[in-house]
Design a protein around this nucleic acid. Structure first.
Length: 855
RNA sequence: GCCCGGGUGGCGGAAUGGUAUACGCAACGGACUUAAAAUCCGUGUCCUGUAAGGGAGUGUGGGUUCGAGUCCCACCCCGGGCACCA
């Protein structure tokens, strides 16, 4: 491989030159089934937005690239892939505005992203690039959905969603800012719409358990745990005074406080509200429900501190003591959690306490505080009081006993509740994966069931304007189901996606065996397998494609499976996954869910997808604020590359501080690493671009420089492995400064230096490697080792302290004995004055470190 | 309110319980140059002192220890997440 011939460090020539060579030789191809040990390092793939790469992308990508190059040098077969999470709203909005197909815009953006990423010199295996909008890819996204569907993990339900009348579309929660659409700032409202929902709650327990086995940041594990929100308690049946209304079922985590229950609360949406409301309260309850319903979520949160409610007029009976307790209706109880009804124990719950104060309800104490405190509400540890039969028990024990007693009587049982809700999986948009589902009549579904073995145990059905339709999956062989061409990308306006306007595609004769279809306007084809069907018009959310892309990289061309079992066995799951903390919950939870389902189906061989996770920090603007167009503090990687080169950019991004930290960009700061690279260039080459005369095959370093050299190999190895790139770079700078002072530079030393620099500044390293007469790419040149015997210096510096205060230091032979050192120290000019007239009570000696006299 | 993470020079940051401020930026002084750029050498926490030296010092206040940026307790501030989940 030949280098350029520039005399100075012309990074604008050097960098594209080597990128071209890497491209041509496919230098970073990962080989399936190699005999080498494997290493799989994964980046979170980007959404290819129209505004191009943001400086945050290269931060994480540089980190993984350094590691990938380092692992290759260490003899690993490295899988380091890149792809595009390319479905999404911005492309669709662009399409609405311009009328061009979102695919065209998406491909333009991908081309630009690929160009920018290649200009950064990352060592991706481009033969494994994936694109979630490619039918060859989303065929498998649809296939996975069908597996979930067949397993009974997908269903259809009417759900309240955010509807924006102005944009004529449904928006996701994260697209709503302060009660308005993120795009345009238009008002949004709640609407009930038919939605696909995935039963992620069925995996709640496994999703918590699996966190034990992964090497993730603790904070991220905690966030997922909190999001899943497991809580152990009991369901208890309270008889209603009006026996014909049956029982009121509540959930509580503290059945031990049952004797302290003085009222009940049901959510305003609770099905028993109407029947429990007595005539005298009807008007008040109606008004309260209306008020609660009209509150937006935002208002409900704002008013969180201000409890309100209304008495229903009815009473329930406390099962443990027969007490008559009033049933209230209040919006501090949520219909979506537990049973939508609670027993209120105001003495030991802050919310109940506040409510009881406001409505003047009794607050009897049933837990005595462990520390004897008498303030209420009390939620700490303690023992039961005023609870006949249980007094004196510690509350966790009472919880078990009371739960058991209720269960024995058949009026309660221990249960576990989760905050996690099922996953709303559909969007009313064009630019997403179509659901491989058609809707048919009950009779047609029955006849399909006779022909198909792959239907769910319980049919998925949905009633609309009096007609019940059944969801029939496309056969696997009929995948992919591609998006039809549409006249307009504008949503239909009635809550359905633009697909609802494509009648030819929508209304079909459908062959239940083969999945073939013809427009319903044509004659019904002959044969029993043909039924009348309407296609599903929803599309999948952007999460879908990113839930499993890490599997496709293993075997991206495979037409018969997500990836072959051999590829899965060889590559396993990523050894390291790097991406932003903003995905700590949703993406990472959804992907884990899918992976666990695939594991249960025997499609993947391991229960967790991401062994080790790391979040890179955010890079702030020079003003210390988050980068944003409106602030005008956005740094464009293209500009930095043309001014300093990508090697400088890569180095600076890593030198800025710890990878996980949030840190401000400073354009001046890049000068420092750029000077460092220029210095390396000058150490290797003379002003004419020939090998520097200081570099020889026979010369030797001074002992001090040699020590620094071996220390540097050691530290750079360790720090790279530990993702502490900032300190690795510091150490290389220290070596650079030391070498600069040396009269002679052994060629072998310079080559080793280039090898440890290569993962960080690969273009410069390749160029100088070639210029110093080496053949082949430095990427294939391995990793140098250090000589541990060179790390020990011939002298050591011992710190001398008196009473813990630093009084001086002395340079001695490492073999010095304690007695010798002590004698030396007490006579030392800087120490002696502090000892005169005092007696040494004790001497602390830390070998090779310090000696401390206590006087 | 609850749960995390973090407060170290003018700035980004470094530091297995053992010389606090490595490395870099900015600044200042000097060398080279007609000059500039580039490069090189040097100074660089604060107070006190001509100096040698002395004293203080890692958000605040306590504690453990021969010795604390590092460990423990309380508090203040900043950042992130969750937020009536019974």
């Amino acid at each position: 491989m030949s280098a350029t011939n520039c005399k100075e460090y012309e990074f604008l020539k050097i960098e594209p030159h080597w990128q071209g060579i890497w491209d041509k030789t496919k230098a970073f191809r990962a080989e399936n089934g190699s005999t080498k040990p494997k290493y799989y390092v994964l980046d979170m793939f980007p959404y290819p937005s129209g505004s191009g790469l943001h400086i945050g992308h290269p931060e994480g990508y540089t980190a993984t690239d350094i590691l990938a190059r380092y692992k290759r040098a260490r003899g690993f077969n490295v899988l380091h892939p890149m792809g595009w999470d390319a479905f999404g709203l911005p492309a669709e909005q662009h399409a609405v505005k311009t009328g061009t197909h979102p695919a065209a815009n998406t491909q333009n953006n991908i081309t630009n992203f690929r160009r920018q990423i290649k200009a950064l010199g990352f060592s991706y295996d481009w033969d494994r690039e994936v694109d979630t909008t490619d039918p060859k890819y989303f065929r498998w996204t649809q296939w996975i959905f069908l597996q979930l569907f067949k397993k009974g993990l997908a269903y259809v339900d009417e759900r309240p969603v955010w509807w924006c009348p102005e944009l004529r579309t449904v928006l996701a929660n994260e697209e709503i800012v302060d009660g308005k659409s993120e795009v345009g700032g238009y008002p949004v409202e709640r609407r009930n719409l038919r939605q696909w929902v995935l039963r992620i709650t069925a995996y709640a327990e496994q999703l918590i358990d699996g966190l034990k086995d992964v090497d993730w940041p603790d904070s991220t594990k905690r966030m997922q745990e909190a999001w899943i929100g497991r809580s152990e308690g009991a369901e208890v049946l309270f008889k209603l005074e009006d026996a014909k209304l049956g029982d009121l079922k509540i959930f509580t985590t503290r059945p031990d406080t049952l004797f302290g229950c003085t009222y009940m609360v049901i959510a305003p949406e609770h099905p028993l509200v109407d029947s429990l409301t007595v005539p005298a309260q009807r008007e008040a309850v109606k008004a309260y429900r209306f008020k609660a319903a009209s509150k937006s979520d935002l208002e409900r949160t704002d008013l969180a501190k201000d409890k309100s409610g209304v008495f229903s007029g009815s009473y329930a009976i406390n099962p443990v003591n027969g007490a008559r307790v009033p049933v209230w209706i209040a919006d501090y109880v949520l219909m979506g959690y537990g049973t939508g009804a609670i027993m209120a124990v105001p003495a030991h719950d802050e919310r109940d306490y506040e409510f009881a104060l406001r409505y003047d309800l009794p607050i009897p104490r049933v837990i005595a505080a462990a520390d004897g405190s008498d303030t209420l509400p009390y939620t700490g540890d303690g023992t039961l009081i005023n609870s006949p039969g249980y007094d004196g028990l510690a509350w966790p024990e009472a919880k078990k006993k009371i739960t058991a007693a209720l269960a024995a009587k058949g009026i309660g049982k221990g249960t576990i509740n989760y905050k996690l809700r099922d996953w709303l999986f559909s969007r009313q948009r064009y630019w997403g994966e179509p659901f491989p589902i058609v809707w048919v009549s009950e009779a047609d579904y029955r006849s399909a069931a006779a022909l198909r073995q792959d239907l769910p145990k319980q049919p998925v059905k949905f009633a609309e304007s009096g007609v019940t339709l059944y969801a029939l999956p496309l056969p696997d062989a009929a995948l992919p189901l591609v998006l039809p061409e549409v006249q307009t990308y504008l949503p239909s306006g009635n809550g359905e996606s633009p697909l609802a306007n494509v009648t030819e595609w929508l209304e079909v004769w459908f062959n239940v065996s083969t999945g073939a279809s013809v427009p319903a306007t044509q004659a019904k084809p002959a044969g029993d397998a043909w039924v009348r069907a309407r296609r599903e018009t929803n599309t999948m959310p952007q999460w879908a494609g990113s839930c499993w892309y890490y599997l496709r990289y293993l075997d991206p061309q495979n037409a018969n499976a997500i990836a072959s079992p051999e590829a899965q066995k060889y590559w396993d799951v990523p050894d390291l996954y790097v991406g932003g903390a903003e995905h700590a919950v949703l993406h990472l939870l959804y992907a884990r869910f899918w992976h666990k389902v695939l594991f249960d189906l025997g499609v993947v061989p391991q229960p967790e997808p991401f062994k080790k996770l790391f979040h890179q920090g955010i890079i702030l603007g020079e003003d210390g604020e988050k980068m944003s167009k409106s602030r005008g503090n956005v740094v464009n990687p293209d500009d930095i590359i043309s001014a300093y080169g990508t090697d400088s950019l890569r180095l600076y991004l890593m030198f800025l501080g710890p990878l996980e930290a949030m840190k401000p960009w400073n354009t001046k700061g890049i000068e420092g690493v750029h000077r460092f690279l220029k210095k390396i260039w000058r150490e290797c080459l003379d002003p004419e671009g020939a090998v520097s005369p200081r570099i020889t095959d026979t010369g030797a370093l001074s002992p001090e420089a040699e020590k620094v050299f071996h220390e540097t190999i050691k530290k750079v190895s360790e720090d790279t492995e530990a993702l502490k790139f900032n300190t690795a770079i510091s150490q290389m700078m220290i070596l650079g400064n030391a070498l600069q002072k040396e009269p002679a530079l052994p060629r072998a030393v310079m080559l080793d230096f280039l090898r440890i620099l290569a993962p960080y500044a690969p273009h410069l390293a390749e160029e100088l490697w070639a210029r110093l007469g080496q053949n082949g790419s430095i990427a294939a040149a391995g990793w140098p080792s250090f000589d541990p015997t060179k790390l020990v210096s011939s002298t050591i510096t011992i710190v001398m302290q008196v009473n813990g205060k630093h009084r001086g230091d002395v340079t001695v032979d490492p073999a010095v004995s304690e007695a010798e050192l002590q004698a030396l120290a007490v006579q030392h000019a800087k120490v002696a004055p502090h000892l005169t007239g005092k007696t040494i009570k004790r001497t602390i000696y830390v070998k090779g470190r310090l000696i401390n006299f206590l006087v």
